[in-house]
Design a binder for these strands. Structure first.
Lengths: 132, 132
DNA sequence: CCTTGCCTTGACGTCCGGGTCAAGGCTTAC
DNA sequence: GTAAGCCTTGACCCGGACGTCAAGGCAAGG
């Protein structure tokens, strides 16, 4: 399988695959003509990367999962190093969600306070002051 | 007041102030020597920007607040345009928090599943299989 | 006068995950 | 043979909010 086919089958682009290779994440064998050659295993690795990326993992954070699969384990998270990343990500998410929730509350409070002063409220039912 | 002092009093850097000026957000008057000159009002505007930035607002999103203050209003959010930004930010935060919470759940589920297979669990009390 | 420290502009670097050419080689089908 | 469609590398572009020089002007103190 060449780069275009792999990209298509994984729903990504050739540029992305070359980028992964440049990061040492998904190296490719080369054919006699210099073309990159991939197999089904690479597709599996790539899908693992993409899944984690969709979850918001950094590229670097997907590395343990890929190496785990490459080491012959059935799943990318069959290795302790992957679990460490999972836990780290969970903690990161918790912190982030907490912060965002806090900010959300503060912004909501500011909005409520400001709306009391400026009648340009949520809905244009401005028939309290002027009757026309 | 010159740029260094303003930066120090607002807890930011001169580079940041020049950047804001380049964006047209916080223009400065100039003294005879070409030095930027600021007053207490600018400090107020700057603090407004910084507060919103800390909340995660884009620079552009702070513009209505700054213009509101510059128009003579007591607060940066005393204008309808600012309220629009508040509401937009709230919606954005809600969406984001929702997504992150969903991801958090999925990651937690993956972790739980993987931990069942790999005994390298949260704490090293591995005295279930081997007794030594 | 000299040093130190603040100021000026301009320009390039950073981080991240790629997108978008450009110029040329290979392959495949007709 | 030739055109289309794949592949190669290299190099620059994106956004956001600045950081980090570089090279030089200006001000204040001794």
């Amino acid at each position: 399988m060449r780069i275009g086919e792999l990209a298509a089958r994984a729903g990504t682009t050739t540029r992305t695959l070359r980028y992964y290779e440049s990061r040492g994440l998904l190296p490719a064998r080369r054919g006699d003509n210099g073309y990159r050659t991939y197999d089904e295993e690479d597709l599996k690795l790539l899908r693992q990367i993409r899944t984690l990326q969709d979850f918001g993992f950094d590229l670097e954070e997907t590395r343990p999962f890929v190496e785990c699969l490459r080491a012959g384990h059935p799943e990318g998270d069959s290795c302790p190093a992957s679990l460490v990343v999972y836990r780290h990500k969970l903690a990161e998410l918790d912190t982030l969600i907490e912060q965002l929730t806090s900010v959300r509350g503060q912004v909501a409070a500011q909005l409520a306070r400001a709306e009391a002063a400026v009648p340009g409220g949520p809905e244009p039912k401005c028939e309290l002051g002027g009757h026309a």
